[in-house]
């Protein structure tokens, strides 16, 4: 299996990660991530037959609480850190093109 990342793969992973990289950054991350993956590749030599994956260190199970109304953050608190807002909403750039004929 591949233990290096080429620049096309870095661009793909950066897109999945929603990170906008410059060409120089793509080059640098390709080199650094390849060196880390090369080190991580030693995991391939371990025999993992029959092992259960351990996602969590505690033998705890999700618990349900009573479905009661409790105090929650106010609208103002929720929006207080928003980079841009309009009235009671988070504002983002237009997603759909304007369609003057639509309706």
């Amino acid at each position: 299996m591949a233990q290096t990342l080429d620049e096309a793969q870095v661009l793909h992973v950066a897109r999945l990660s929603r990170l906008k990289l410059s060409p120089a950054e793509v080059k640098r991350y390709a080199r650094q991530l390849s060196s880390i993956l090369d080190y991580v590749a030693q995991l391939q030599e371990v025999d993992v037959t029959g092992l259960q994956p351990m996602a969590h260190p505690l033998p705890l199970h999700s618990v349900m609480r009573e479905d009661e109304v409790r105090p929650a953050l106010s609208l103002e608190q929720v929006l207080a850190n928003a980079p841009a807002r309009e009235e009671a909403f988070f504002a983002v750039p237009r997603v759909l093109d304007e369609d003057p004929g639509g309706g």
Binding site: Q44, V48, L51, P53, M54, A55, P57
Partner: peptide, 10 residues
């Protein structure tokens, strides 16, 4: 695979 090796470390 890393999660299975986690089991071995434990």
């Amino acid at each position: 695979r890393a999660l299975k090796i986690r089991q071995l470390i434990k």
